[in-house]
Amino acid sequence: MKKIVRYLTPAVLAALTACGGGGEEASDSGSSNNEGQSEQSQQESSNDKGETITFGKTSWTSTAAPTQIAKQMLEEAGYNVEVELLDQPVIWEGMQSEEIDVFMDAWLPYTEEQLWSEYKSDLQKVSTSYEEVPTGWVVPEYVEAESIADIKENPEKFGGKIYTIGAGAGIVNTSKEVMADYNLEEAGFELLPSSETAMISELKSKISNEEPVIITGWRPHSMFVDYDLKFLDEPKENFKYDNVYVLSYKGMEEKYPEAYEILSNWSISVDTLEQMMYEYAQNDVPFEELAADWIEENPDKVDAMMEGQE
């Protein structure tokens, strides 16, 4: 087994340099520096498999950090890695056609049940990122409502609006079911798909004035670090606790066995991921840098993921 030669990929070097790392090596003599570059070039050359792994990534911040960590680790293992920013249904279709190799953020068995039913004959669960995480409708803690039944009584209090993310996402489809099951359109509510960024902007604006607001929410997400929020009770249980999986198409383990082996050992805690998302949202720390830091701080976990490398 080859343990990871830590932090020598271009992506990781760039991230560490941004943090101020690498200054000591830069002050070495020219001959020593050239020798180090030669050794690094030889290492990269020996690791280069000449194969490209393509990740599908949504605009959700919960997808960004895991994708970036996996990208840097697969680059260290010698793969070229590309990341395609796509709508969620397009990613699943791309995996079916093997144009997309991996998706790091599939919510199953409930939130993305429709997509899984459509594509499960061609796709597989590679590993579990984290388990038992909630989705649902979220309000600030200062809002008196505790359940869907409570908001139905006072639609004008919320402007008749429920803010959500892009159409086609599992949480949007489930929200449509909630709208129908509780007759919320007849009560005066409207579900408004937009983007995660627009939804969070609306939440921030309303909280700054301590106004009532309803959004679709899920954990992990930095909103639960930023604000005091609560999920509304939903007695008909359209929203259920999910696990989050890494997906690929069936046969990836034969096409890219080492990449598959690395990804099959992947996991991350919800608290860790939310903190990374918070650093990105509040302190403008790039996910590339956050991923490099995670790799640096978790050597045992990284080595375990890299088991199986020749």
Rank of each mutant, 00 (worst) to 15 (best):
P66H: 04
N265W: 08
L16Y: 00
T9Y: 04
T54Q: 11
S205M: 14
Y249H: 09
R219L: 06
P257D: 08
P193D: 02
I171N: 02
S121H: 08
D293Q: 11
Y110C: 03
A281L: 09
G36C: 07
K204G: 07
G136L: 01
L192C: 09
E288N: 08
N33M: 15
L263N: 06
T58Y: 00
T52W: 07
E310D: 11
D48A: 13
D233S: 15
M104I: 07
Y119H: 13
G168K: 05
F287M: 04
D271P: 06
Y142H: 10
R6Q: 09
P134Y: 01
S195I: 03
E296M: 11
P109L: 10
I53N: 05
Y227A: 12
N154L: 12
I200T: 05
A281T: 05
D150V: 05
W92E: 07
T272A: 00
G166E: 15
F103C: 05
S267Q: 10
E211L: 11
F158I: 07
V302P: 00
N33S: 15
R6S: 06
L86K: 11
F239N: 05
A198P: 11
L16K: 00
Q43T: 05
A149Y: 11
D293V: 09
T128Y: 06
E279H: 07
I215V: 15
M104F: 00
A70C: 05
